[in-house]
Design a protein around this nucleic acid. Sequence first.
RNA 1: GCGCCUGUAGCUCAGCUGGAUAGAGCAACGGACUUCUAAUCCGUAGGUCGCGGGUUCGAAUCCCUCCAGGCGUACCA
Length: 554
Amino acid sequence: MKRTLQNMLSEALAASFREGLLPSCEIPPLEVDWTKDPAHGDYASNAAMILASRLKRKPRQIAEILVAKLGDSGGGIQKMEIAGPGFINFFIEPAQWYQMLGVVEERSERFGMSDLGGGRSMQVEFVSANPTGPLHIGHARGAVVGDVIANILAATGHSVFREYYINDAGNQMNNLGRSVYYRYLQLLGEAVEFPENGYQGDYITGLAREIMDRDGDRYRVLGEQEAVPVLSADAGGVILEGIKDDLKAFGVVFDLYFSERELYKDNGVAKLLEELKQKDFIYEEEGTLWFRTTAYGDEKDRVVVRQNGEPTYFAADIAYHRNKFARGFDTVIDIWGADHHGYIPRMMAGIQALGHEREALQVILVQLVSLLRDGKPVAMSTRAGEFVTLRQVVDEVGKDAARYNFLMRRSDSHLDFDLEVAKRQSNENPVYYVQYAHARICSIFRTAAERGFVRPARRDVDPSVLKLDEEIALIKAIVRYPEVVEAAALALEPHRLTFYLNDLAGLFHSYYNRNKVLSEDDPLSMARLFLVTCIQTVLRNGLDLLGVTAPVTM
RNA sequence: GCGCCUGUAGCUCAGCUGGAUAGAGCAACGGACUUCUAAUCCGUAGGUCGCGGGUUCGAAUCCCUCCAGGCGUACCA
């Protein structure tokens, strides 16, 4: 509908130019938007005001000419008004709205999907935590945001690939191996001192115990040098399996877990650095290799190979991103914790040096989460191994409440996550608001069946009996849903969907309290049942994109 | 010091990339269950959109100064 109006406006403008009613100029994109206030019609355009300065005419005069032209074409418009400084307000024929409800039925579980992306392939990389310990609450937000962005992109005609980058090649893994090794020695009764920067969580002791039970004192005999790499790989593998399980319980599944070590096979990283050196992006100074990231606007050049010969994380990350593009993805989306934002300029420089446009990489920053319990901060220290894990949160508050809570804010905004509030079954907790709307609709259908109503199809009802303002408002909200999904996809902002669903549920709850769906008036009951079916479809589709269940009963 | 982000109702946050009278939830107060689920609804109250300038028909939104908070500023990841 929005697009139809835009096209009509463009045509009207072109016609005015041809007929000399207006001095011609290049046609700028003409905007048509939803109105906030029903008094302003259903849609409004600011076209006349945009054109005013270019055409050197008064906005209202331009608006009048356009409205006269549009009047000729008819097409579902009940009336048009010129208002305020020069807005053109469109009032749509109710029949148009009713007709669009038919689309909801036709498209059903596909309503809201589109081919916006035209099949472009997008890779979404998220979570990507070191397998040095279980995922904690901070990772949970990134996991949901990434997962839902991927869902939304998939729904809008993109080919989506979800990937988890396992940072399993660096110091941290070595540290993990040492931590396990020392716990292991302690379990064997050695009075060794645990490394100061080691991982202190209880899970380390658990891993050490498993190894001891299985392999006895083998690694003590082997010695630290030999044992640490083995224990590191062993423990990393076990922890990664745990991470996968936790994510699965959280509703997050990846297409690929990509190991950083892959990049080092066949000297891959070294070869890449050599290539970049040929292109003069890399130079040597004081025994270290530097990447000329300043060539693309970074504030200083960055080290890629340290003095001790070890490549930095950045070096591997360039190789990783080259690998991504080599696999044919048109766009690569990285979801990072906001504390990594300083890393963006160098990564952007990296992909540009590889010959890609800046736009090919999109970085979404997710702010860290403050965990609360009844309004009081929960003490967390990763070093000391005191933290609330993703698994604990899912077990305590449930998958649906946890996911929904992470989607209630813009990603780039601090989030307080209160465990007590998230599991409270009250109106302080917004998850249930939307789910309850869905459950209520299901309940209406149970009652309807008892009273002998069948679920009506579009052709069984005369929607023109839906005359109430609230009913029209509901229909408009339903019709708007696909646009919300598209907007969320374009902006990579899943929270828009959350807010929309909350609004739709609100409209429904209000309507439900004021009006009976089932009454003595059969045609009205049927029409309302059909309306409610459409709401149910949208709620279910929307919740599905969020990865939150749509319960039949609550 | 420099860079990025944030600043909107008592609290937590939206505000559709510049539109019409700035919205919602919670908290407060007052109402609605013999009714398709009260995990709901209706109403009241609550604002110098951090401050000051600028851009234009029009600014919470864009630009600049300043103030406050967070993060970053590694041969860590």
